[in-house]
Amino acid sequence: MKSFDLEGYLSSGVEQVIAGIMKATAKNPKESLFLMQYLLDSRKARRIRKACADAGEHIPPFLIASITTQCNLHCQGCYARANHSCQDGIDGKHPMLTGEAWGRIFDQAAELGVGFILLAGGEPFLRTDVLEQAALHKNILFPVFTNGTMLTDAALDLLGRSRNLIPVLSIEGNEQTTDLRRGNGIYQTLVRSMQRLNKKGIVFAASVTVTKENLAETLSEDFVTALAEQGCKGIVYVEYVPVDAAAKAQALDDTARTDMMNRLNALRECREDMVLLAFPGDERSSGGCLAAGRGFFHINAFGGAEPCPFSPYSDVNVTEVGLRKALQSPLFVRLRENGNLEAGHIGGCVLFEQEEEVRKLLEEPDDDQGTNCR
């Protein structure tokens, strides 16, 4: 693998995203004022991470946090339901983290220089207590990935006074495509939610799960323009991770992934008023997958530190060891050092097809690891 400055690569990516958001929201005074302050905070966070890197400790700028296991929808092909990390009720035997516990995790993240925490679920708007805690951390940007069906008046009020919470509404394409996967009437619910967000001047984005079936539609100029006309300021394209072997036919292979990135780059040329991102995007430029602490890691609803949402295996809990030590979990270290993150793959997760290998690494004897920086 070619050697490169990972911290510089990731930090530059963060600043490019911020610059893109500022450009997309130039006509929104409240958002512009918040982002100007956040940009200063982001540069401070980068200095913290740089100091850690100089001391031999890598701190990723991103985290992904699934703050609830509950969801009010049953989307076709949902990976979270397939691996039982998402359900209808509450498991009384395994209580989810409280809002206060998440607040302490957010505190630690800010101290380490983490600038983005993506909030997911389940449906995050079922945990307004956690969203309230996130709102207090103005030096962290929280994209909230939501199905868009629970944006009540109270939720809109929270978003209106908390500019660091950015709702990202999931959509699959046009009305037929979206309702086929998410349920009848969901597309029109999303349209109404976007209209209400736009009317209140709340910045929002959209998230698209890209399959071979909807790739051409969702990366077309017509689709992007239609979202822009609703007030949408950005789109995150997430490569589909198949729930089982039968679903692999819909996952992107290298040819489809190249097609997606070519279409995305063309859209970026003509839609400078929007932030257009791909996850995981071109991993080759970062020397492999960014999971397991290279660029981010995932915290599940119970505090378990996992390589990513699509590799739900954990050997430490952040509430027990803290965020810093969780970054040096034996599983994460093995995944980073053994070359697992550099393998080729079909679909949006390099570790998905290495399930047995990840299990074996999880079972290896633990070593006490970790460093410190200020």
Score class of each variant (00 low, 15 high):
Met36Ile: 12
Ala45Asp: 02
Ala51Tyr: 01
Phe297Lys: 01
Ala305Val: 09
Gln250Val: 03
Pro365Gln: 09
Asn262Pro: 03
Phe223Tyr: 15
Asp107His: 06
Pro330Arg: 08
Pro242Cys: 07
Asn28Cys: 01
Leu136Thr: 13
Ala80Arg: 00
Thr319Trp: 05
Gly288Pro: 04
Arg359Tyr: 03
Gln108Asp: 14
Asp153Ser: 14
Leu112Arg: 01
Gln195Ile: 11
Cys52Gly: 10
Gly295Val: 02
Thr146Asp: 12
Pro29Asp: 02
Glu213Asn: 03
Tyr9Met: 08
Leu327Pro: 02
Ala256Gln: 04
Thr178Arg: 12
Tyr9His: 11
Asp5Cys: 13
Pro365His: 05
Leu180Asp: 06
Asn340Lys: 07
Ala205Cys: 14
Ala26Phe: 04
Arg43His: 07
Thr178Met: 11
Val316Cys: 15
Leu190Cys: 03
Lys212Pro: 00
Phe310Asp: 05
Leu335Ala: 10
Arg374Tyr: 15
Pro143Thr: 07
Arg284Trp: 01
Ile117His: 01
Ala135Gly: 08
Gly20Glu: 12
Asp367Ala: 15
Leu35Asp: 04
Arg294Met: 10
Gly288Ala: 10
Phe34Lys: 05
Gly303Gln: 05
Gly348Ile: 05
Leu6Asn: 07
Tyr9Ile: 03
Phe223Met: 13
Ala278Asp: 10
Thr98Gly: 06
Arg104Asp: 11
Met260Gln: 14
Ser32Arg: 13
Arg284Ser: 11
Ser207Thr: 06
Val236Met: 15
Ala256Thr: 05
Asp366His: 13
Gly304Tyr: 04
Phe223Ser: 03
His298Val: 07
Tyr187Gln: 09
Arg263Lys: 13
Ser311Lys: 00
Leu97Gly: 07
Glu15Thr: 06
Gln188Thr: 14
Leu39Lys: 09
Leu264Glu: 09
Asp153Phe: 02
Gly234Thr: 11
Leu158Asp: 13
Leu33Gln: 07
Ala154Ile: 11
Arg81Asn: 02
Arg161Met: 11
Asn184His: 15
Ile90Lys: 13
Thr98Ser: 15
Ile140Tyr: 01
Asn198Gln: 14
Thr177Ile: 11
Ala135Val: 11
Gln37Glu: 15
Asp54Cys: 03
Val17Asp: 08
Leu119Phe: 06
Leu267Ser: 04
Thr189Gly: 11
Ile105Ser: 02
Ala305Ser: 12
Cys373Trp: 07
Ala101Asp: 14
Asn300Pro: 10
Glu57Leu: 15
Gln188Trp: 09
Ile117Tyr: 01
Arg294Glu: 15
Leu158Phe: 03
Met150Ile: 08
Leu331Ile: 09
Pro330Tyr: 10
Asp367Trp: 12
Asn300Arg: 01
Ser207Arg: 07
Phe145His: 07
Asp273Leu: 07
Ala278Trp: 00
Glu15Ser: 10
Glu123Asp: 08
Glu239Pro: 02
Thr225Arg: 13
Val114Tyr: 01
Ile67Arg: 13
Gly56Glu: 03
His94Trp: 09
Pro124Thr: 02
Ala305Ile: 04
Ile140Asp: 00
Phe116Trp: 12
Arg336Met: 12
Glu57Gly: 01
Phe297Trp: 06
Glu15Arg: 12
Val238Asp: 08
Thr371Tyr: 12
Asp54Tyr: 00
Trp102Lys: 04
Ser193Leu: 05
Leu180Tyr: 12
Phe34Cys: 09
